[in-house]
């Protein structure tokens, strides 16, 4: 469970990027976060990853206060969270297999387990045949699949996606969103920041709307209102 408790974040003195946000996300939920550019969505993601510290308030993930996590404990904390970005952030000098294995090597996974997990992830995202390809030989949609496989290879409980379909055409965007939905069906809590309102409307999930650093609505599409 993710609890965001009255969190504010100001980069510099002046208008805060986030202004007193409070939010509950239950384990196993699928949540969209929408809002204009500059409304603070990415800032929120960074706070959840403890890339940034809140100016005020606290975030509690699975019972653990992020303010109480010391620098040395951050790596271990992050291993519970997978992330994907709009720009994929793959390593250009390594092939698909190595890009996924990388996430395991980084946390000192035994080679045996790597050899077992990477092919599993590859077939889950439908790229088993392309494991030898380099990122530049793949379409945007395929690259994002690799990024998703990398984010999930260590079996995190939470997946954060910051505009994962921002660089994709409509068809590929749909495929990626469906994949994220499948991942959520298997039990992972999924948080997706997006501009793609068409997909948001069609998928009928919980939608949180932000504007200028505050939450202006939180509703379950096709269901009852939460607030």
């Amino acid at each position: 469970m993710i609890v965001i408790d009255n969190v504010s974040k100001a980069y510099k003195a002046g208008i805060p990027a986030l202004n007193g946000i409070s939010l509950h996300i239950n384990t196993g939920e699928f949540v969209f976060i929408v809002g204009d550019s500059g409304s603070g969505k990415s800032t929120l993601i960074k706070l959840l990853l403890k890339e940034l510290e809140p100016t005020e308030g606290d975030i509690i993930i699975n019972g653990r206060s992020l303010n109480g996590i010391r620098h040395k404990q951050i790596p271990r904390f992050r291993r519970n969270i997978g992330v994907v970005f709009q720009d994929f952030r793959l390593l250009k000098d390594r092939n698909v297999y190595e890009n996924i294995a990388f996430a395991q090597r980084v946390i000192a996974t035994p080679s045996k387990k790597i050899k077992r997990r990477v092919p599993m992830m590859l077939s889950m995202v439908g790229l088993a045949a392309k494991y030898k390809s380099y990122p530049k030989q793949l379409s945007g949609g395929e690259q994002q699949r690799v990024a998703i496989a990398r984010a999930l290879v260590n079996e995190p409980k939470i997946l954060l996606a910051d505009e994962p379909t921002g660089n994709l055409d409509a068809h590929n965007a749909w495929d990626i969103m469906k994949l994220l939905d499948e991942i959520n069906q298997k039990g992972t809590t999924v948080l997706v920041v997006t501009h793609n309102l068409e997909i948001v409307k069609a998928m009928k999930k919980r939608v949180i709307t932000m504007r200028k650093g505050v939450i202006v609505s939180d509703e379950r599409m096709g269901g009852s209102n939460e607030i």
Binding site: P75, F77, R89, L91, I107, R150
Partner: peptide, 16 residues
């Protein structure tokens, strides 16, 4: 730099 940033997000320790 980019690779290091990704490593940190994935949960690599300082040592690594």
């Amino acid at each position: 730099r980019e690779e290091i940033a990704i490593m940190k997000l994935i949960g690599a320790t300082d040592y690594f």
